[in-house]
Design a protein around this nucleic acid. Structure first.
Lengths: 194, 194
DNA sequence: GCGCACAAACCGACTGGCCGGTACGGCTGG
DNA sequence: CCAGCCGTACCGGCCAGTCGGTTTGTGCGC
């Protein structure tokens, strides 16, 4: 238990500093000082600074993948599942706002094999989401006059942008924003009534 | 004439390298080599590496501000102006895709006063855009059941995300994408008919 | 045309500092 | 007493920025 405490506090400090200062401008010394440990302790649990960064990505990707699969497994009509997925990913992204900041800003700082892995896992998520949209289109519920790529980018952009404008101390709660953004998205991609 | 050529080629090389490798991982030496000049020449035209980065921001902000004002000055109904602004900013952002990549990824690398200035100028742009949306709401054309902040973030997110997915060599032309995204956005924020 | 003076443009070796990573010694709980 | 855990001093490399010097351009008197 105590052993993981060191690793955990280092990871937490790294996340905070990467999110506020950026990866490149944060030194390992700063991280261990913020975590209240020493370099020796840190390098006992992590092989490199890059490991710290990747751990952030790994945690986020695992969580989102798991949640997506849980929701899909729960079943329901395509639009209901799609709505649930959208709301959930926005809420999760708000819970992981600092992770999101680091995620999109520091992807290019990962070493080559790791960046490849992150890209690969993102693609899997993307494809699963795309399958939902495709199904909705096949059922005639979603419009087909706009390329699916554009429809999907249109949604992911909202998630992506959250860390640039949303503040937990602002007027909107995460649930409100999640529902509002989902509503805007679904309204734009649903076929017109009557 | 020859004098500006050095500055221009340095800026172009810096833009390319910052966009592909990131600001922190690009050395001044790399930039000047790519530009085919020497460090001495570069430091004759720029005071610091930070200057190169800021020049990219300055150019982008100036261009977008100018275009926004031209379109607003041209006049028309609120929704027409809003549509024109949206299409234009997407098209412009596609023309400046590398700049966009650097813009959102490296903002935190700017020195404090410059980051302040960039934030300030972005805020001005944001406010002008918000005024258009507010006017549309006052005229009853745009929905008011979602906070204006969310509506606006919903649009800016698309612009922001372009550099992460759009490729000029892909199937969609910039004009198509601009119209498609604008259409999705306006559809989601317009009050329902009938 | 032609030397001349002077400034602007440019060169590139060098430096001072920082930073990721390591070597190694000591501590401590089982 | 040993094996994992951690502290600390240090190293090698890199990199932004500098600085004395050289070249190139330019106006001017003659």
């Amino acid at each position: 238990m105590k052993t993981t405490h060191v690793a955990d506090s280092v990871l937490q400090a790294a996340l905070d500093l990467f999110a506020t200062q950026g990866y490149a401008t944060t030194s390992v010394q700063q991280i261990v000082e913020a975590a209240g440990v020493t370099k020796g302790a840190m390098y006992h649990y992590f092989q490199s600074k890059d490991d710290l960064l990747f751990a952030i990505y790994d945690r986020m990707l695992s969580l989102q993948k798991r949640r997506l699969e849980e929701i899909v497994a729960a079943g329901g009509t395509t639009t209901d599942v799609l709505r649930a997925v959208c709301v959930d990913v926005v809420e999760t992204s708000i819970d992981l706002l600092p992770e999101g900041t680091v995620f999109f800003r520091s992807m290019h700082m990962l070493t080559e094999p790791r960046r490849k892995e992150v890209t690969q896992r993102r693609r899997e998520y993307h494809d699963e989401f795309a399958a939902l949209v495709a199904q909705g289109q096949a059922e005639g519920a979603l419009r087909t006059d706009v390329p699916r790529t554009v429809l999907i980018a249109h949604f992911f952009s909202d998630v992506h942008y959250l860390s640039y404008w949303y503040s937990p101390s602002g007027p909107e709660t995460k649930t409100e924003v999640a529902n509002q953004l989902t509503d805007l998205f679904l309204r734009s991609i649903t076929v017109e009534d009557g």
